[in-house]
Amino acid sequence: MNEPLVILDPTDERAAIGRRLATRPDQLQGTLGIVDIAKPRGDVFLDEIERLIRGRLPALDVIRLKKPTYTKPSPTSLRDEVGARCQAVIQALAD
């Protein structure tokens, strides 16, 4: 008899949830967080970004934040801080 084959789901059974990008602001205002993921020389790049932004948008409040290490996900405390303090975030990968 040709019965249909039934297999067991090997996954965690959480339906894949597509991640959508956050809505991009039309203009920067409030507090901008610049997050360094702690890759070597990422700070050099972000220093330059910060200098350019401060020059062009002097009214913007710019803060610097940093992950302890690029090899692990951000700690919850850092994510909470970004959420609480920042209206926009720049986070860059450097290599």
Partner: peptide
Amino acid sequence: ARRVQVPIDDDPFEFMSSQGLDDGLPVVP
């Protein structure tokens, strides 16, 4: 675990591959 019925006309190996459950080589259903 959730039961997944392989469509009766599908080859089980092709089905599992199409679902992204393998590592590029066929897997045992």
